[in-house]
Design a protein around this nucleic acid. Structure first.
Length: 415
DNA sequence: TCTGGGGTCCTAGGACCC
DNA sequence: TCTGGGGTCCTAGGACCC
């Protein structure tokens, strides 16, 4: 049974979300910035046409934006998350199998679909009508070819958002026009190395000797070669695995030197990580805290701790992180970022019974506190360490309201 | 002045075991 | 005098993705 992979990819997703509630942005060059208004992470078609690159630092482009009337917005993740789940919901109602790949992309299985192209066009229209988000659909016999199909469709408006790669001749033509760095799984580093070997376009990689590629690079790249040849190596991910690690970190709104500021920030990240840990019903056996100091890009230092037995409760996590942080901290340094990572995650019920008798009351109290901290809105209950400072908080000067996820920020229609 | 955050997988190399 | 080698596990680091 031949598989048919279809990638549904939202166009300029963050910008498209902003436009839903602010039609004045329509037809204008718009970009959305990363946390801290640091980098450009989403660009409208008009912004792309002006030559604004993905990932560029905002401050380097601020003057250019003024000159060309480019509108820059802070990112609004509650809004994007909510719109994303609406798009995914339409997919789940329409397709037999959906694998959510990221906030703005999903794979759907069209293997049993008699006419994939018709289906894709109708689905595209439905998503547009029901959510207001424009999408592009790329279809092919492998994930890598489906991804290539969508890449081409985004560049070529005459395809009207749907592109299929099955025909051998057509595929060869498309792969000849596709740069090697635009192939899924090939980043900057690999692209440079491949070009040194005379592999410039996707078609060159397709025609390369898979065995040689494996020897020179890795099995992953070998799989990409097979995928370009139409032999599927990356299937649908059927079961949703729990995460293998949980990370929470942020660049501070300004450089910090006081230990207490760092402690406040880090306590917040531990809280976020702990929340996620409990949401997945997991416990951790190893925690690392890292901090970055010095001028950009700066120097990372980290310290880690292995727990005697798996931990999920917040108080324990907070205390451990605080100790690690204090061990790392050196006065008179300027710190720009900190973060917490939880490793070696395992399901909570797999806990081995402790060798040592538990202190029942304390355990229970901590457990209750952890859950309260997860559930209650921020200002109601906070961990003491958090109160040591607010200086680390982000800048987000251009943020749109949380139109769909906060009552007090619902859009108002003026009479 | 101002440069994101959250993940995954693979590989090489060291420690250790028999 | 001869001075192994194969397997596994762990970790750090690098590359990629969005």
């Amino acid at each position: 049974m031949k598989k048919i992979f279809c990638l549904v990819d939202c166009d300029n997703f963050y910008v498209s979300c902003e436009r839903l509630f602010n039609p004045a942005l329509e037809g204008k060059p718009v970009v959305v910035l990363s946390n801290n208004d640091g980098c450009i992470v989403s660009r409208s078609q008009e912004a792309k046409a002006l030559g604004i690159p993905m990932g560029a630092p905002f401050f380097q482009w601020e003057a250019f934006f003024k000159k060309h009337g480019v509108i820059a917005l802070s990112s609004n993740y509650p809004l994007y998350g909510d719109i994303s789940s609406r798009v995914m919901q339409v997919l789940e109602e329409s397709a037999p199998f959906v694998e959510i790949y990221s906030i703005d992309e999903a794979w759907i299985d069209l293997s049993n679909c008699p006419s994939p192209e018709d289906f894709a066009r109708k689905l595209r229209e439905k998503i547009g009508r029901w959510t207001g988000i424009p999408v592009t659909l790329g279809i092919g016999p492998t994930k890598t070819l489906a991804k290539s199909a969508s890449k081409i469709a985004k560049k070529n408006s005459s395809l009207k958002g749907v592109n299929l790669l099955f025909d051998e001749e057509e595929t060869a033509k498309v792969l000849s026009s596709l740069e090697i760095e635009d192939v899924w799984g090939i980043g900057k580093k690999l692209a440079t190395k491949l070009k040194d070997l005379g592999i410039h376009k996707a078609i060159d990689l397709k025609n390369a000797d898979p065995f040689k590629i494996r020897k020179t690079f890795s099995v992953m790249l070998e799989r990409t070669v097979w995928e370009l040849r139409g032999i599927s190596c990356f299937g649908f991910e059927e079961n949703i695995d729990p995460p293998k690690q949980i990370l929470s970190s942020q660049t501070f709104g300004q450089p910090l030197s006081r230990l207490d500021d760092l402690r406040a920030a880090t306590a917040n990240f531990v809280k976020e990580a702990g929340k996620k840990l409990r949401r997945f019903g997991l416990a951790t056996r190893r925690m690392a805290v890292f901090i970055r100091h010095g001028s950009f890009p700066g120097c990372m230092e980290s310290a880690s701790f292995c727990f005697m037995e798996p931990v999920e409760d917040l108080m324990n996590l907070l205390e451990t992180a605080d100790n690690l942080l204090q061990a790392l901290y050196k006065p008179r340094r300027t710190y720009t970022k900190s973060g917490v990572v939880l490793f070696d995650l395992l399901p909570r019920e797999n806990h081995q019974a402790s060798f040592w008798p538990r202190e029942g009351e304390k355990e229970k109290k901590y457990h209750t506190l952890s859950h309260l901290l997860d559930e209650l809105p921020k200002p109601l209950l906070r961990v003491g360490t958090e109160l040591f400072g607010e200086n680390w908080r982000l800048r987000a000067q251009r943020k749109s309201p949380s139109y769909t996820s906060k009552w007090e920020e619902l859009p108002v229609v003026k009479a």
